[in-house]
Nucleic acid binder design. Structure first.
Length: 268
DNA sequence: AACGCTTTCAACCGCGTTTAT
DNA sequence: GATAAACGCGGTTGAAAGCGT
């Protein structure tokens, strides 16, 4: 099916916004609120397409935006969330009040990537540089998806006979606050997913992600200061991102699918 | 001062998803 | 259910600023 352009290209301004355009947009949204971006430009007297207005408002004019440099805490939170979510910038932004997805994406590409490289960490895989085989690199674009067969790693994955779709890689040797393992979940049902659907193995497991496990960051891989950095990052990680229940995002009301005591449920 | 290279980030583009008809 | 319109997202671009020579 074809798509018509989102606006009439001939009569719209492009490029940088002027102060007057900003004022018009701000005044209009103050009076009428956000929404209906397609009709907004005309109503506000702007020669812009609705998409452009929405972007300008969300990324620059919104009053609740936090301006200024990212803090060290924000840096670490972004890194941790990226290791969990990959390039889902809007989801990451949702956990950083006052920051936009565009801002975080830009910051990731210009600062954090470099920071991770300087720590000897691959920003896509969140593993030590050079530790990922080429087959893994090409198997899936998602940064946190790995088909690695390490025995001490639980995987949150959707698996079929034909293909494996790992979603979130979770180490087994981390205290996960009491979240049940895949084996426990299967055991309680009495029947495995393979018994229900012989052609499909839905081996779902869920747990808290931890990108700093010892097996990945052993003394062989990292020097002393890098190990110290990882330990500090882990402490911050536990204090920020660890108290999150992912079950809600899978459609289960909190507490129905897991026994963890997380105070935050996510809508992944 | 002039030039070229690099970095930054606001804005655009195309596409997938959701909603309305 | 099919189609079109609108929305939202992630990747990419390009102008401006910064920096070194």
């Amino acid at each position: 099916m074809g798509r018509s352009p989102c606006c009439e290209k001939e009569h719209t301004n492009k490029g940088a916004w002027t102060k007057e355009e900003d004022d018009r947009l701000i005044n209009y949204i103050k009076l009428h609120g956000e929404g209906c971006w397609r009709s907004l430009p005309k109503a506000a007297g702007l020669l812009r397409c609705g998409k452009s207005c929405r972007l300008r408002w969300i990324n620059y004019l919104r009053p609740d935006l936090k301006r200024g440099n990212f803090t060290e805490e924000e840096d670490e939170l972004i890194i941790n969330l990226h290791s969990l979510l990959g390039n889902k910038w809007s989801l990451i932004a949702a956990r950083l009040p006052g920051r936009t997805d565009n801002e975080i994406k830009n910051y990731w590409n210009t600062h954090i990537k470099r920071k991770l490289y300087s720590r000897g960490i691959d920003p896509q895989t969140h593993r030590p540089l050079g530790s990922v085989s080429s087959s893994n690199k090409t198997s899936n674009n998602n940064s946190n998806c790995s088909n690695g067969s390490s025995s001490n790693v639980n995987r949150f994955q959707l698996e079929t006979k034909q293909s494996v779709l790992p979603l979130i890689q979770v180490p087994a040797n981390i205290d996960n606050g009491g979240a049940d393992s895949a084996e426990d979940s299967n055991g309680s049902s009495g029947l495995s997913s393979e018994e229900f659907f012989p052609q499909i193995n839905l081996e779902l497991s869920i747990g808290l992600p931890f990108p700093f496990q010892q097996s990945r960051f052993s003394a062989v891989d990292l020097n002393q200061s890098q190990q110290q950095q990882q330990r500090a990052s882990y402490q911050l990680f536990r204090s920020t991102a660890a108290d999150v229940c992912l079950c809600y995002g899978l459609g289960f009301p909190k507490g129905q699918a897991c026994s963890c005591s997380a105070s935050v449920v996510t809508t992944l």
